[in-house]
Design a protein around this nucleic acid. Structure first.
Length: 827
RNA sequence: GCCCGGAUGGCGGAAUCGGUAGACGCGGAGGCCUCAAAAGCCUUUGCCGGCAACGGCGUGCGGGUUCGAGUCCCGCUCCGGGCACCA
């Protein structure tokens, strides 16, 4: 597209200017009030795509706007530079992940600079920087000391072909390994965990006070999944029919339904399985147990996709437990629908009031005893609604809530149970069997067990002389020089941990490091954190709404509680804005989908300003955006807007009139000041598309004004031009800076000016359109004084010829008057 | 299945508190300029009827509340997202 000005040239000029002048560098002792604006640091996957453009355009607008409003704005950026794609590339091409990653960072950095986004580049950090790794490892060791990091068995994804553990995202939807195609199994392996569940309650409760999108808060609430109920013992029946010493602990949210328990279920992995299984049942139980280990995950995901009812499989163990509420024995099953990872891994089954239990009971011919009276018209199996208790002894006749409380009282009196809250949230599994991540800094000593690497020996860095083989094994585990080490405690031979940390660990505190990336006495400078935290505005894709944001919230609290942070606010992100995703042909724009639209071609064709303007203008930033055939035409339209602005300010005569302002001058000034008001409001409420629309209206009015008879008044033209450029400075920074410089040679740049204010006297209307309706239909519009009274408005409306005509002789029954905007005559 | 969003012209979208539906842009149509084209400029553009003035219809569907509903309430349909055996 032919432009009115050389966009490439002026954009490069200003990008160099901002870099060379360190324009958005900010010192920690800056006297201005602080504002921390942060876009989620990107995974460096190569040149930017439109998702990046959108994200960093929003952040840049905020940074420039807040700076003009007089804040010291912290605008840092870095790179989430550990991760699987670099390692896969290494296996494919033999290039070391660091080389691959550094190249990708350079490409992405070029894209962002080309967008005109400004940062304090001195603060740039990346996850794979040894300094960052060192502090990452220090935090891990402090977590270990504090009991927040621990090692435990976990059921993990195991690929028999690759002979390794896979991360969830490496398991395809059909339950196969993404690399080898083998069916993934569940295996119990020792893994590292962070004790995020200790903070479950606080992480849940504190959501209420956050200024985040509601849907994100809802997602986090559901993810944490608090449920209240009771935990109690079911004693195993002794051979004589009475209670034995052994008890099965179960969790339920419906203790009120206990009288309806007709069997109990334990998970296939439950430690009591062997002990409860009688000899005649062992073959069947063992078969179910091995089958569950192999295939439940696959079948679950398959059932989830097709919406099919899951087949719940189980086997009777041969044992019975005694229901403490009615002393009746019920059979104990093992079944794949009970999960070891939740509650106690064992349940009382009440088919009448639980759909899963009902389905299972149907399959295995187990009885159903209702304890809640369903309504007469109820058809179906399990009834989970309200109703009076029946068949429930001392609970009969009570409602559900009351009988829950009574049932728990009973359990507590008997000393066999207690009120209990459970969470869906699990502890955070942080081990990854990968090379390209931050090594977990521990060694295993035959004598001293798990020993942390002393802090003066950190960081533990992966060796370079490794081979990337498509074996699926982490190269670290195959590197003798790395794995063979000495115990820091006893000096004897020891084995080094070869697992690395989940990359979500890096992103859980990088924003704290930005506060002072030069700090050398710890991971986070207490003064820097106190100065800048919490992040005032966090911006990023909603795909990180659960994990990243939850982990960061946990990290901030954990670091405060163990003294790695001063007692700053416990929430790291005060406001979070979730930008919508960019879709193409119905699917998300991403490298893996191969549907990336790189911005570089647009920088050359229409310029970064036009592309930025497009992203701001095309719709609300929270909404998804479809990249279609029409998109390029809209981008060209944004270029045309800038061309017309350029011509206006460089080619139109500014006028030669002197003396007082005439009506045209005043009318234009009114529009100008209203635009300043509207754009300011729109930016504050993140309605950038309407802010741009108001700029369009201003330009249309300005062009008309510039061409009026007698020409514009030079003072008004100047006022209009300067204020217009101030409004555009955060949105289209290059062209605003260039035009400003041409108008103000030798003076400070547009971005160093204050955000413009408007003249309140000019934005008050001297007349408004009053709508006159008859029976709710618009029949007339009358220009009136804004301060018009109700009586006058009514008289004007009833006097309207159009109203008289519409009434056709009928007399008004009622007149609704809402001066000055509306009168509705009801006939 | 459960939980959250959303649905407005040919298209992206606007309408901030229940009060002029369609701002602004894209696309289309017509015109000016030009030998011609591109660019630019001007006019027009929700649908139906009418030469026009104007009238009727219109915010996914069906009801309701209200003087008045895109906006609030009830019941659906479709699309998108999250979770998914969590007892």
């Amino acid at each position: 597209m032919a432009r009115a000005y050389d966009a490439v040239k002026i954009e490069q000029k200003w990008q160099h200017h901002w870099l060379e002048h360190g324009s958005y560098q900010v010192e920690n002792d800056d006297p201005r009030p602080s504002y921390y604006c942060l876009c989620m640091y990107p995974y460096p996957s190569g040149p930017a795509h439109q998702g990046h453009v959108r994200n960093y355009t929003l952040g840049d607008l905020v940074v420039r706007h807040k700076t003009m409003q007089g804040f010291a704005v912290l605008s840092p950026i870095g790179w989430d530079s550990f991760g699987l794609p670099a390692e896969n590339a290494a296996i494919k091409t033999g290039t070391h992940p660091r080389i691959f990653t550094d190249e990708r960072i350079a490409e992405l950095k070029t894209s962002l600079i080309g967008l005109g986004a400004v940062y304090d580049w001195r603060r740039e950090i990346c996850s794979h920087d040894p300094v960052f790794m060192r502090w990452n490892q220090v935090i891990f060791l402090r977590f270990l000391e504090a009991g927040l990091a621990y090692r435990a068995n976990a059921a993990v994804n195991w690929c028999p072909g690759c002979q390794t553990v896979l991360a969830n995202e490496q398991v395809l939807a059909d339950g196969r390994c993404e690399r080898s195609g083998d069916l993934v199994e569940k295996r119990d392996l020792e893994q590292w965990f962070f004790r995020i569940t200790s903070y479950a309650d606080e992480l849940l409760a504190a959501l209420d006070g956050l200024e985040w999108p509601d849907r994100v808060k809802v997602m986090q609430r559901n993810w944490i999944g608090r449920s209240e109920g009771a935990e109690f013992d079911l004693f195993v029946q002794a051979p004589d029919g009475g209670r034995s010493e052994v008890a099965l602990r179960v969790f339920t949210t419906r203790p009120d339904t206990s009288f309806g328990m007709t069997y109990a279920v334990i998970a296939p992995e439950h430690p009591f399985v062997d002990q409860l299984t009688t000899e005649n049942r062992r073959a069947e139980v063992d078969e179910l147990r091995s089958r569950a280990a192999l295939s439940t995950e696959i079948e679950r995901s398959k059932a989830a996709d097709t919406g099919e009812e899951l087949t719940r499989r189980g086997a009777f163990t041969g044992s019975y437990v005694i229901n403490p509420f009615n002393d009746q024995p019920v059979p104990v099953y093992i079944a794949d629908y009970v999960l070891m990872g939740y509650g106690t891994g064992a349940i009382m089954a009440v088919p009448a009031e639980d759909e899963r239990d009902f389905a299972f009971a149907g399959t295995y011919g187990l009885p159903v005893v209702r304890t809640v009276q369903p309504p007469d018209d109820f058809e179906g199996g399990a009834y989970t609604g309200e109703g009076p208790k029946i068949n429930s002894g001392f609970l009969d006749g009570l409602d559900v809530a009351t009988s829950k409380a009574r049932a728990i009282e009973f359990l507590e009196e008997e000393g066999i149970g207690t009120r209990k809250v459970n969470y869906r949230l699990r502890d955070w599994l942080v081990s990854r069997q990968r090379f390209w991540g931050c090594p977990i800094p521990v060694v295993y000593c035959p004598d001293d067990g798990i020993v942390g690497v002393p802090e003066d020996q950190l960081p533990v860095v992966a060796p370079d002389d490794v081979e990337f083989l498509p074996s699926g094994q982490s190269p670290l585990a195959l590197h003798d020089g790395f794995t063979h080490t000495t115990c820091p405690k006893c000096g004897g031979p020891a084995r080094r941990e070869t697992d690395t940390m989940d990359t979500f660990v890096d992103s859980s505190w990088y924003f704290l490091r930005f506060c002072n990336p030069w700090y050398s006495d710890g991971p986070v400078d207490p003064e820097g954190a106190s100065r800048w935290m919490p992040v005032d505005q966090y911006i990023g894709g909603v795909e990180h709404a659960i994990l990243h944001l939850l982990y960061a919230r946990f990290y901030q609290r954990a670091m405060i509680d163990i003294g790695l942070l001063p007692s700053i606010e416990r929430e790291p992100f005060r406001h979070y804005f979730a930008q919508g995703m960019i879709r193409m042909d119905g699917s998300k724009m991403s490298k893996s989908k191969g549907n990336l639209i790189a911005p570089a071609a647009y920088y050359e064709r229409v310029g970064a300003d036009a592309l930025r303007l497009f992203h701001l203008f095309v719709g609300p930033p929270a909404d998804d955006l479809d990249w279609t055939d029409q998109t390029d035409e809209i981008i060209d339209g944004c270029g045309r807007f800038l061309d017309r602005l350029w011509r206006l300010l460089t080619e139109e005569p500014v006028g030669t009139r002197t003396g007082p302002l005439n009506d045209d001058d005043v009318a234009f000034r009114r529009i100008l000041h209203k635009t300043i008001r509207d754009v300011s409001q729109d930016i504050d409420r993140w309605s950038f598309n309407t802010a741009v629309a108001h700029c369009h209206e201003l330009l249309n009015a300005f062009l008309r004004y510039a061409r009026i008879e007698g020409g514009p008044h030079p003072d008004v033209f100047t006022e209009g031009a300067d204020r217009f450029l101030l409004l555009l400075a955060p949105m289209t920074p290059h062209v605003a800076a260039e035009l400003w410089e041409r108008r103000h040679p030798g003076e400070s740049s547009v971005h160093e000016q204050s955000w413009p204010s408007f003249d309140a006297a000019l934005v008050t209307e001297d007349s408004v359109t009053m709508v006159v309706q008859v029976n709710g239909k618009v029949r007339d519009r009358i220009e009136v004084d804004p301060s018009i009274g109700a009586a006058e408005a009514e008289a004007l409306a009833l006097g309207s010829e159009r109203v008289i005509e519409a009434l056709a002789g009928a007399s008004p029954k009622r007149v609704v008057v809402r001066p000055p905007s509306l009168v509705n005559v009801v006939a």
